[in-house]
């Protein structure tokens, strides 16, 4: 995984609450055994009509949202199933950062593991961003290093990220490799509970 320090991209707004992972990637697409290729099925039931044609009313299908890489969402984003296919689908579609007032725990964790940044901002800040992304394109800069989200109009919001994950994301490290170096501690633990 490549490291990520600062990211600039076009943001799309999705002003819906409790968006669950069943919506992000419906179950009929969970049968693949690879991590790739899920982007085409992202938000499938919202994005496409019954006949398979794009639903023009869906946020991501609007012309101004072509080429977006940041998603501004609303509260409890990613709730429900633990399926990592949800962040895989968002990543494969092109998203690198998801901004919301709150995330479901497992989804939040799954994003970090895949080098996609979940950013929690305050309700007022989300309101501003949802407003800015309504029917128009809006560019944002997200810095993992300074833990800020900014735009060209002077908006600046800071967010929290655990220093462990800040480090992991900025360096693009392989977590398993790091843990395997803890072998002595793991062995010691196993012996102590025998």
């Amino acid at each position: 995984m490549a490291g990520l320090t600062t990211f600039r991209g076009k943001a799309a707004g999705m002003d819906r609450v409790n968006v669950d992972t069943d919506q992000i990637i419906p179950k009929q697409f969970l049968k693949r055994i690879e991590k790739t290729g899920f982007g085409q099925y992202l938000f499938y039931d919202w994005r496409f009509k019954q006949d398979g044609s794009p639903n023009p009313d869906f946020e991501l299908n609007r012309p101004e949202n072509e080429g977006v890489s940041i998603l501004v969402a609303n509260e409890n984003f990613g709730c429900g199933s633990s399926r990592e296919h949800a962040p895989w689908a968002l990543l494969d579609y092109g998203f690198k950062v998801i901004i919301a007032p709150s995330f479901a725990d497992i989804f939040h964790q799954n994003c970090l593991k895949n080098g996609m940044l979940p950013v929690v901002l305050k309700e007022q800040e989300i309101k501003y961003l949802l407003d800015k992304t309504k029917n128009q394109s809006h560019e944002l800069t997200v810095s993992i290093e300074s833990k800020t989200v900014t735009d060209a109009d002077g908006f600046s919001a800071s967010f929290e990220i655990h220093p462990y994950w800040q480090n992991m994301l900025m360096n693009g490290w392989d977590e398993i490799e790091l843990t395997l170096q803890m072998e002595d501690s793991i062995k010691k633990y196993e012996e102590s509970v025998q």
């Binding site: 497992i106 964790q109 593991k113 977590e175 843990t179």
Partner: peptide
């Protein structure tokens, strides 16, 4: 519940951060 990356992590190390 955990995601697939964590499944891999547990398979390899029997631990989780």
């Amino acid at each position: 519940g955990i995601g697939t990356s964590e499944v891999e992590h547990v398979l390899a190390t029997q631990t989780l951060w």
